[in-house]
Design a protein around this nucleic acid. Sequence first.
DNA 1: GTAGTTGCAAATTGTTTGCAAGCCT
DNA 2: AGGCTTGCAAACAATTTGCAACTAC
Lengths: 151, 151
Amino acid sequence: MASSTTEASTWLRQNGLRATLGRIAIVRLLFESTVPLTLAEIHDKMRGEGCDFATVFRFISILEKKELVERVAWIDGSTRHEIRARDGDHHHHHYLICRTCHKIEPIDECVVEHFEDQIAKERGYASLSHSLQLSGVCPACQKPEAGKKGK
Amino acid sequence: MASSTTEASTWLRQNGLRATLGRIAIVRLLFESTVPLTLAEIHDKMRGEGCDFATVFRFISILEKKELVERVAWIDGSTRHEIRARDGDHHHHHYLICRTCHKIEPIDECVVEHFEDQIAKERGYASLSHSLQLSGVCPACQKPEAGKKGK
DNA sequence: GTAGTTGCAAATTGTTTGCAAGCCT
DNA sequence: AGGCTTGCAAACAATTTGCAACTAC
């Protein structure tokens, strides 16, 4: 926990960025989250150690320009951000979203990679990437009385 | 061309909607487009026969409430809208987008359907749907001098 | 010390609503 | 005729920027 602070500031400096308290807090959130976050979520989760919304906005923009963070257009129209894979730690591209309680589950398998190669070959596109989101109603929300559960 | 006007107003009335000039123009655009459109694109393409942006906004909202049009969160963060399948005419769920010239190509094959069933079974989700977008650099934009081409 | 970073507030852009006038049926 | 629909303008929300004070290196 204290070590993840060290980890975050090391990561920042390795990437040529200054390590301020706000940035460290943001990076820790990105490291710890298994799902992409909105700017508002990042800002909200920092109450206490917080920094201004404009700082979140600008810092995430910097990370995206450096390709350390990826911008994801979410299926509900919001924009989310997730840190790119560090070393061996591969990250998720695919999510399963409950339309009722908005829970987000990562999906590890990737059925698209092979298809992506095929399309690249067939149509001559370069450096393809993809985004896949499934949405449905999760088991808990299918139970009538439990419908209002979750956040 | 004149016939697509008739077609559009017939479609409107079949769905219990009044056929005004603005609405007919919007519906024709939706019928003719092979890719989802933004509200701004719909509004822009109507110069002449045009109607107000608020009308586009409200009419598309009505169509979405009636589930005649589907809202799509685009990979670049914008929101797009596409008409749902009419009769036999199946529509596209998948697109290939050029990151340089922003050209959009529909993809007919669907590799996700089988995967969707599998996930539904494994995790107990109901009424799954999905959204898949591939992005890359199209053949034209890979040629150095042609990089500025496209729109 | 200096350049990069921050918070605050304002500017900008995009989305949504209220209302009186007009149009479709 | 009557209610649905429209255009206009204003309200609202979200994103982005300017600037002086501050901080990491």
